[in-house]
């Protein structure tokens, strides 16, 4: 019971406090990949802790302890004991519902998003391979179109796609920056991260953590890919490439993305020098991110150990 309450409190507090802190942290812009890992930790730790809270209530000695406990008669007695009173049964039923709900919601949300993205990409690729020509030297697909556009289709058999007008607008140096950016997306498997974040938001639409995490992971994936592009060329070339492809006056209609200010911020970030994070700071943050995920597991395993030690082997 105590462990369950502890885990539940952990989930609630972490879910309520950490997103705002992480969103406001200034180091995020300097280490977008690390920040992505931190968001991923949060989105795993919060539902994970809630799930473990439910499970520890259903199985008092926790899954780890149960097989061991079963070997000892005393523990079986104790297990039976904990299911004895009607109040207990009610609490356990609630806990069971909570656990099942979390598992099914996550499976549904993430499953839908991964499946939809996969299907959409497949459909896109089926048409693309008919109409595009492969540029062997650049290893990209080129589509003849007057809008300057560059994107990547992630996943197996994925590719970078450029329109012919993007190719002619960019020139060698900026093109190298664009390709490095897209390759960073493909190499970092950003599509899996973003689709999972989307799936969690779909699973728990009322919890703001997941909406914030989705938005932040989308934004940070772009910053991380920009950094890779800077590595392959230089800051100002990447900024130039961004402006070249953002300034597309060929197509009519409003030039509004889902998050219109993000692009401007990406360019501004590239224009000023941002020193990389100190290695020690990086290490501390990475450790914190891992601890946030590991702590609930440890907490859930503790009572099992304690149960085996104290209750199952009574010293009296």
């Amino acid at each position: 019971m105590n462990t369950a309450m502890l885990l539940l409190t952990y989930a609630v507090v972490l879910g309520a406090v950490a997103p705002a802190m992480l969103q406001r942290a200034s180091w995020v812009e300097r280490a977008p990949r690390l920040a992505m890992a931190a968001w991923r930790s949060l989105t795993v730790a919060v539902p994970g802790a809630a799930l473990l809270a439910g499970l520890t209530m259903v199985v008092p000695a926790s899954p780890l302890g149960a097989p061991l406990a079963r070997a000892l008669d005393a523990c079986v007695m104790m297990m039976q004991d904990s299911y004895a009173t009607p109040q207990r049964v009610l609490i356990i039923m609630v806990a069971l519902l909570l656990s099942v709900a979390i598992i099914t919601r996550v499976a549904y949300g993430v499953g839908v998003e991964l499946g939809r993205a996969w299907w959409e990409r497949r459909r896109h690729m089926a048409v693309l391979r008919m109409v595009a020509r492969r540029d062997v030297r650049l290893d990209v697909l080129v589509v003849h179109h007057r809008a300057a556009i560059a994107y990547c289709l992630p996943g197996r058999g994925g590719s970078i796609v450029l329109s012919s007008s993007a190719l002619s607008a960019l020139g060698d140096r900026r093109l190298a920056a664009v390709l490095a950016h897209e390759r960073a997306h493909l190499r970092g498997r950003h599509h899996l991260l973003t689709a999972t974040a989307r799936g969690l938001r779909r699973a728990f639409p009322l919890i703001t953590l997941f909406a914030t995490a989705e938005r932040e992971i989308d934004r940070l994936a772009e910053l991380a890919a920009d950094d890779a592009a800077v590595h392959a060329s230089d800051r100002l070339t990447v900024a130039d490439a961004l402006l070249t492809l953002a300034d597309d006056h060929v197509l009519p209609g409003p030039a509004l993305g889902t998050t219109p200010h993000d692009t401007g911020q990406r360019v501004r970030r590239l224009l000023k020098r941002t020193p990389p994070l100190h290695p020690v700071v990086t290490l501390v943050i990475a450790l914190l991110a891992w601890t946030a995920m590991a702590a609930p597991l440890v907490a859930a395993a503790m009572p099992a150990v304690a149960t085996i030690g104290v209750d199952c082997c009574p010293t009296r």
């Binding site: 998003e113 939809r116 993205a117 959409e120 990409r121 896109h124 809008a147 556009i149 560059a150 994107y151 990547c152 289709l153 992630p154 796609v161 664009v178 950016h181 897209e182 997306h185 950003h190 599509h191 973003t194 689709a195 989307r198 989308d218 994936a221 890919a225 490439a241 961004l242 402006l243 492809l245 953002a246 300034d247 597309d248 197509l251 030039a255 509004l256 993305g257 889902t258 998050t259 219109p260 993000d262 692009t263 401007g264 990406r266």
Partner: peptide, 19 residues
Amino acid sequence: ALKSSPDRAAALARFVERM
């Protein structure tokens, strides 16, 4: 590919949105 919808964003990653 040019449409800025969440569906598209999940399926393919565009280099830059229009400004």
